[in-house]
Design a protein around this nucleic acid. Sequence first.
RNA 1: GGAGAGGUGGCCGAGUGGCCGAAGGCAACGGUUUGCUAAACCGUCGUAGGGACAAAAUCUCUACCGAGGGUUCAAAUCCCUCCCUCUCCGCCA
Length: 429
Amino acid sequence: MYDLKYLRENLDHIRTSLGRRGNDVPWADIQTLSEERRAVTTQVEQLRYELNKGSEEIARLRRAKAPAEEVMMAMKQVGDRIKVAEGTLRKVEDALTDVALRIPNLPHGSVPVGADASDNIEVRRWGTIPTFSSPPKPHWEVGENLGILDFDRAAKIAGARFSVMTGAGARLERALINYMLDLHTTQQHGYREVVPPLLVNRQTMTGTGQLPKFEEDLFRLRDEEYFLIPTAEVPVTNLHREEILSGDCLPLRYTAYTPCFRREAGSYGKDTRGLIRLHQFNKVELVVFTTPDGSYEELERLTGHAESVLQGLNLPYRVITLCTGDMGFSAAKTYDLEVWLPSQQQYREISSCSNFESFQARRAGIKYRPIGGKKEAKTDFVHTLNGSGLAVGRTLVAILENFQQPDGSVEIPSVLRPYMGGLERIQKE
RNA sequence: GGAGAGGUGGCCGAGUGGCCGAAGGCAACGGUUUGCUAAACCGUCGUAGGGACAAAAUCUCUACCGAGGGUUCAAAUCCCUCCCUCUCCGCCA
C-alpha cells in the first residue's frame, strides 16, 4: 500500500505509472477522500489543542482554588465537536485505506510493458531437453502405472484437485523437500529454516497483499477468523510485521517448507488432471528482507538459488521476466522459472521470484534502522522478496516426465538418492 | 474447559484522575578521564502525522502506555468488550 500522504501528493504519477494495472482503481474517489482527510485531520488537531489548553487551565484554576465551571462548560462543547470531527475522520480514513489497499504495486523500470503472458521476455535457458523414442507419457500416467500416485482415491476422500502419493512417490516428495531445505540452509545460500503457522489471521493476509482484494482465492475457516496460507510467503514475511529491524542484521534470509492451500477459483478446466494445479500442494519458499539499495541484486541472487535446485536435479528450464500485465498484484518485478514438461512439449511455471520493494513492508509495517554512515538513523521500510525454491509437486511432475524410461520406470536424480535410501530407480512394485 | 495473575519505551521497572511521552535502572551512542581494558563522571537516547523555515539544524502542535469502545473539562490510571502472556487444575499429540 502507498503511504496516504505520498498517495495524495503523487496521485497522477502513480496513476500514469500503473497504466492498465490501475484500471479498476477509483482515482477520483481517492483524490476527494485524500483532500478531505487532510482537512479533517487539521480540524481535529486544532480542536484537541484547544481542549488540552482548556484542561490545563482548569487544573491551574483548581489548584488556585478558583472557580473553573465556565471553562469546563466550554471544554465540554469542544469535546463534543471533537467527537463529531473524529467520527468523520474515521469514516474518511477507513474509506481511503480500503481503496488504497487495492492499488497494485508500481512495476520496476526494467519490467517489460505488456498485456498478458505472451509479452513476457525469456531471459535464459538451461539444460538439455530430453528426447524419447516413443511419445513421453504425462506424469499422471507414469505415476499411476507405477502405483505411486492415486487420484481416484484422492477424489474420494477429498475431491477434485487433491492428490494421494504412496510408497516411492511419497518418499520422493519428502526427499525433494529435504533436498531443497538442505541446499538453501547451506552457508552458500544462507537461509534460516522456519516452520510457521499454516493458519493466519486477516491482518497477516493483508500485510503480504492477499487481502482485501483476493479473498475468493483463499480458504477460510467458517467459525474463526483464520485463513489457510496460500504460500509460506505469507507467514514468513509477516514474521517481522510491526518491527523495526536493526540494519546490521540485513539481509535476513528465511526458507520454509509448508503445504499451500488455494481455492483456484476461476481456473475451472485448466490443468484438471495430475499434480499441476491442486487445492493443496507442498512448497519450499525463500523469503528475504533487505535494504532498498540492495534489493535488485538480491532478486538475482534469490532467483539463482531457485535455479540451483533445478540444476542439481538436472531438469531443463528457462527463466522469464513477467511483463507488466502478467505480474502479481504486490510485485514490482518477477522472474518465473519454467521447467520443461515433455508430455506437454512446453515450459511450465515451477517457481516465481519477486521483489516487492517496500509494498509489503508498508502494509506490514516492517522497517529497519540504518547503521554506520551518518548518525541520523532515520528508519525506513525494508524491501521484501520471495521465491519458490521450489514448488515440490511440480518438481515431482518434472522428474516423472523427464526421467521416465521406456519400461515405465523413472530414474531418480543422483542428488536425491541419499534421501531415497539409495534407490536409483522407481519401478512398479 | 475451570480458577487466578498480568500486558508501560530496545530491555527491566515505577506510576491509581490533571506540569506524565511517562521516575529510576540496564543496554546503546557521543564525550571527559585513562598506559590499555575496566570503572567513574557528563551528555544523548521512542514511533508516527501536521505546521513554521527556501532547506537543514531547530522550534512547535497532535497521536501513541496490548487493541477497540465508554465515563470525565481532563485517562497509562476508572468502566466495558476483545486479543495476548503467565501460574494452577482438567484434557490432550
